[in-house]
Structure formats: C-alpha cells, structure tokens
C-alpha cells in the first residue's frame, strides 16, 4: 500500500459510509418488527396495511442507499 495519504482517507471514508447502511438496517428492522407486533395484536387489520409497510420500509431503506451512493461517489468519482 504505497498510495498517498489522500487515497488512504478516501478508503477510510468509504468504509465509514458502511455504518450508514447499518443504520438503515436498524430502521428497516424497526419498521418490520413494529408492523409484525401490531399485526399479531390485530391480524385482521394487517392485510390492509401492507402498502404502508412497504412505503415505510422504502423510506428507511432509501437513506441506507444514500450512504451507499456516497460510498460509490467517494470510491469512483472523487
């Protein structure tokens, strides 16, 4: 690894963005878990709320994808 210090910082930054994906994972897990606990309490209302579930998961996941995008930008475009 005889790269320069800038490249080192770039790789460290890329690695740090992976933490963002962890956050998104927590968020998606939260959405799914809360949906499940609600659905088990009131199973008859669960089917009508799957659309909301997916929307919530999509919003939570999008932020993780943003961190992935930052990683890609750091990796290939900086």
């Amino acid at each position: 690894m005889e790269g320069n210090i800038g490249e080192l910082g770039q790789y460290i930054g890329v690695g740090l963005t992976a933490i963002g994906m962890g956050g998104a994972a927590i968020g998606v897990g939260n959405v799914a878990g809360n949906f499940l606990s609600g659905a088990l309490r009131n199973p008859s209302a669960a089917a009508s709320q799957t659309a909301t579930l997916f929307i919530g998961m999509a919003f939570a996941e999008a932020l993780g994808i943003f961190s992935f995008l930052v990683a890609l930008l750091l990796m290939f475009a900086v």
């Binding site: 999509a58 996941e61 999008a62 994808i65 943003f66 992935f68 995008l69 890609l72």
Partner: peptide, 13 residues
C-alpha cells in the same frame, strides 16, 4: 432524487 436513487441504488448494490 430519492425515487430514482432508491431504485438504481438497490439494483447496483
């Protein structure tokens, strides 16, 4: 932005 990057990001990843 979020609509496009969500889809493309998921596919790329």
């Amino acid at each position: 932005l979020s609509l496009s990057i969500r889809l493309a990001g998921n596919m790329i990843a």
